[in-house]
Computed example of a mutant assay.
Amino acid sequence: MTIKSQRCLWLICLLLMISAGIMSLDCNLLHHQQSKFNWTGLQLVKRMGGKFRLECLEDKTSFQFPEKVLKPKFPQQAMMAVHEILQQLFGIFSRNLSQTGWDRRIVERFLNGLALQIERLETCLPTKRGTNIWKLKQYFQRIQDFLREKKYSTCAWQIVHEEVLRCFQYTEKLTKKMKN
C-alpha cells in the first residue's frame, strides 16, 4: 500500500468517525428539536382550525387514544411513538381538506414541519417496532374512518382538529420521555 493510499484511507476513517459523532449528537438533542416542533406545530394547528362551531357538538366522538403509549419503558419507545403520531398526522392532513376552509399556506407549513421532523426522527429510530405502535395505528384509523364516514365535512374536520390538539399534548409528554 502506498503512502498516498494510506493517507486517503486515514482521511476516510477520520471522516466516518466525525460524521458518526455528529449523528449521535443530533440524536442526543432530538428531544429538544421535538419539543420546539411540538410548540410550533401546535401553534399552526390552532391557527388553521379557527373557532369550534357549536353545531358540530352533535358529531363529537371519543377516538380513545391508547394511554399505554404514554408510559414507555425506554426513550426509544417514546421516540417510536412520537414518530408514528407525526406520520399519521401527516397522512391525515395530506388529503381531503377542501371543505375545511383552512388557510392552505398554514396547512403546507404544518406539513413541511411534520415532514422535516419525521425525517429527523427516522435517523435515530431503532429498527424494532413495538405493539404500542399498532395501537397508535388503530387509533388513527378510527380518526380516518370518522372523517370518511362523515364525508370529510366541516364539522368532522372540527372534531378531528380538536383531537389533533390533544395529540400534541400527548406528543409533548412522550418527548419529555425521549431524554436519555
Rank of each mutant, 00 (worst) to 15 (best):
I118V: 11
C8D: 10
H83W: 12
M23H: 12
K173H: 10
K150N: 15
K151P: 03
R104W: 08
L116Q: 13
R105E: 13
Q6I: 12
L54W: 08
L97T: 09
Q76V: 05
K68D: 12
S98F: 14
Q138S: 10
L147I: 03
F93T: 02
R142V: 04
R95M: 13
E149L: 12
M17H: 06
G49F: 01
L42K: 07
C155E: 07
N96G: 06
L136M: 07
R148Y: 09
V82H: 00
K150Y: 09
W102C: 02
E149D: 14
C8W: 08
W157A: 05
W39I: 11
I22A: 11
E122Y: 14
M17F: 08
C27S: 09
K68Y: 06
K179D: 09
E162D: 10
G91C: 07
L147R: 06
Q117V: 08
L114R: 01
P126G: 09
C56T: 06
K71G: 06
K68M: 09
N180Y: 08
T123H: 11
C27Y: 04
F63H: 04
W134I: 15
Q77S: 08
C124P: 04
F93C: 04
K4A: 09
H31R: 05
L111R: 15
Q117K: 13
T2N: 15
I12Q: 06
T123P: 03
G130W: 07
W39S: 07
Q144L: 07
K177V: 13
L89T: 01
L16C: 15
F110I: 02
F110E: 00
L25P: 02
C167F: 05
M80F: 04
R120Y: 08
F74P: 00
L147G: 03
Y152P: 00
L9I: 07
E122R: 11
L174I: 05
Q158P: 04
